[in-house]
Simulated assay, not measured.
Amino acid sequence: MGSHRRPKPPSRSRLAVLAATAGTVSLLPTQSQAAPKPSVDEVRQQIEELYHDAEAPTEEYNATLEKKRKLQKEAKGAQERVARQQHEINELRDQMGPMAAAQYREGGLDPSVQLFLSSEPDTYLDKAGALDRMTARQVAMLSTLESKQRELSQTRAEAMKKLDEAEKARKRASGKKQEVLGKLRTAQKLLNSLTAEQRAQLEAKEAEADRAAGTSDSAASYNGPASGRARTAIEFAYAQLGKPYEWGSTGPDSYDCSGLTGAAWRAAGVSLPRTVQEQYSAGRKVSRSDLQPGDIIYWYNSSQHNGIYIGNGKAIHAPRTGKNIEITPLEYMPFYAATRP
């Protein structure tokens, strides 16, 4: 059996040790104490990482949104074909109307006409061999009808498939949009955590970094050697200097990176795909040593960020949320590749 004796009280010396230990512990930080706030430099680094991390889902959003628009356009075309095909079928039915009426006046409907007017005319030709009173004209008209009804059914199925795919693309784009917005909200929350003095320090550090990198260079007009369409594209990009970056935007008041490159070359009469990855895939690859003004520069990888080379080791680009279109040295970010539209 277990013992029910009271525990022996602690000795005076043991109480003294416990008291001393408690005093020591009270001097240590506890979990309830607030963690020290990050410094301005730490906040700046975290914000830069968030904006950088938002670029990839931004491009995925752009690609998905573009796919949705394409699918919607294809679905609309299919629906228009449905309407035309239905009209042709209705015209055939109208042509068969007088034929059916004549048969009725002569003592009853021709079996072929009865089949035609039935709810399942597609089965007509399977049974047509047993009909010996059918005219060649009826055979031709009913064969045409069967073919058109088959086409109509296929076109309707195509339209429904395109609409379903477009809706799935819309949902995927919505998910990517929320991912981007989540990163931007986190960045804004970090900014809001700073005092007015800290925000001023942050702005001063960013301005200093821009000056050191040469991104503050914003000449009003292009005076380089480019000619033809390349010059037109560069001049368009120069005209956008100072306009804000906005993710998912293709102008005219704001742009994201691929939105700017696409709009610039579109102004020169060249149609580029919407996203960084698509523009990279569509262009002719050129080495860094062969760069010419107007070439499209890709930083980091083939799908994240791009801009337009203007010569002298510099490019014009739409950088990120919170900044404006600017001119930057190529080495300001890790150079990946270049293409020529």
Score class of each variant (00 low, 15 high):
Phe116Arg: 07
Ala212Val: 10
Ser153Ile: 15
Val17Asp: 13
Thr135Ser: 13
Pro334Arg: 11
Ala239Tyr: 07
Gly182Leu: 07
Gly2Ala: 13
Glu278Trp: 04
Met141Tyr: 06
Gly97Gln: 13
Gly182Ala: 12
Ala34Leu: 09
Glu59Met: 04
Ile325Tyr: 06
Ala337Leu: 01
Ser112Arg: 06
Lys323Gln: 14
Gln198Asn: 04
Gly214Asn: 01
Arg93Lys: 15
Leu131Phe: 12
Ser118Cys: 00
Gln79Val: 04
Glu331Gly: 02
Glu80Phe: 10
Tyr332Lys: 10
Ala207Leu: 11
Gln138Ser: 10
Pro98Thr: 04
Arg288Val: 01
Asp126Met: 05
Arg172Ala: 03
Tyr104Lys: 11
Pro273Lys: 04
Ala200Lys: 15
Glu278Met: 12
Thr232Ser: 12
Gly269Val: 06
Ala187Gly: 05
Ala207Ser: 14
Asn324Ala: 04
Glu158Gly: 02
Arg133Thr: 14
Ala220Met: 07
Leu71Ser: 04
Gly259Asn: 00
Thr261Cys: 02
Thr123Tyr: 14
Ser153Glu: 14
Val139Arg: 09
Ala200Tyr: 12
Lys37Trp: 09
Leu163Trp: 12
Gly294Cys: 00
Gln103Ser: 15
Ser302Glu: 11
Gly97Val: 10
Lys76Tyr: 03
Gly307Asn: 02
Asp253Ser: 15
Met333Tyr: 03
Ala140His: 04
Gln95Val: 10
Tyr61Gln: 03
Ser254Gly: 00
Glu42His: 03
Arg231Pro: 07
Ile316Asp: 07
Leu241Val: 06
Ala159Trp: 12
Asp164Trp: 11
Val43Thr: 09
Ala83Tyr: 13
Leu163Thr: 08
Lys243Asn: 12
Tyr309Ser: 05
Pro334Trp: 08
Gly259His: 03
Tyr300Thr: 09
Gly242Val: 03
Ala20Val: 08
Tyr332Ala: 11
Ser13Gly: 10
Glu165Arg: 13
Val180Trp: 07
Pro121Asp: 00
Lys8Pro: 01
Asn312Gln: 13
Thr186Trp: 05
Asp217Ile: 08
Leu142Asn: 09
